[in-house]
Simulated assay, not measured.
Amino acid sequence: MMPDLGKYAEAVLSSYAVSIALLVVLVWMSLRRAKRVNKQLEDVESKVKRNG
């Protein structure tokens, strides 16, 4: 199913690997930031409820 890449196989496959790794890192960073922002929002909302 994989096409014959000839002498460029290493370059193409390493480019795919780097691209996939960068996508994984970006998703991980986004999820981590979303969790942090959600926690901050919950903190602000609880302060507002307490202070009325």
Rank of each mutant, 00 (worst) to 15 (best):
L41M: 15
K39L: 13
E45D: 05
V27P: 02
N51S: 06
D43S: 10
R33M: 13
M1D: 02
M2A: 07
V44P: 08
K49L: 12
S14L: 13
V12H: 00
S46D: 12
D43H: 07
L5Y: 07
K7P: 04
V25K: 00
V12T: 07
I20D: 00
N38R: 14
R32S: 03
Y8C: 07
V24Y: 07
V37W: 02
E42C: 02
V44W: 01
M1G: 11
S14D: 11
L13H: 06
Y16K: 06
V44L: 07
S19G: 02
L13G: 10
Y16L: 08
A34S: 14
V27Y: 09
V12N: 00
V44E: 10
S30F: 12
R32A: 03
Q40T: 14
V24K: 00
K47H: 10
K49T: 08
K47L: 03
E10H: 12
V24H: 03
E45M: 05
R32Q: 09
A17P: 03
L13T: 10
S46L: 12
R33C: 04
R36T: 15
A17I: 10
L26K: 01
D4S: 13
I20H: 01
K47A: 09
E10K: 07
K7W: 13
V18E: 02
A11T: 11
G52M: 09
S46F: 14
I20Q: 08
A11D: 11
V18H: 04
M29G: 09
Q40N: 15
R32M: 07
K35A: 15
E10F: 04
V44A: 02
S46T: 13
Y16F: 04
M29L: 14
V27N: 01
G6P: 09
R50D: 14
L31Y: 06
M2E: 11
Q40M: 15
A17C: 08
A34D: 12
E42I: 10
A34Q: 15
E45H: 01
L26W: 02
Y8S: 03
K35Y: 05
S15H: 07
L22N: 11
S46R: 14
L31A: 08
G52E: 08
M1V: 02
L31E: 10
R50Y: 13
V24G: 08
K35E: 14
K39F: 12
Y16G: 05
V37T: 13
M29Y: 06
S19D: 01
R36Y: 14
L22I: 01
E10A: 11
L13K: 03
K35W: 13
V44C: 03
V37K: 00
K39E: 14
L31V: 05
V18D: 01
R50C: 13
K39N: 14
M29C: 05
A34K: 15
N38W: 15
P3H: 02
L23Q: 12
I20F: 00
V18T: 08
E10N: 11
W28P: 00
V25A: 01
W28T: 01
R36I: 14
Y8L: 09
D4G: 01
R33N: 04
E10D: 13
L26T: 10
A11H: 09
L13D: 06
N38S: 15
K47Q: 00
V48M: 08
M1E: 01
R36D: 15
R50M: 14
L5E: 05
G52V: 03
Y8T: 05
M29S: 04
L26Y: 03
S14E: 14
S30L: 06
E42K: 12
V18G: 02
W28H: 05
V48Y: 09
V37F: 09
A9L: 13
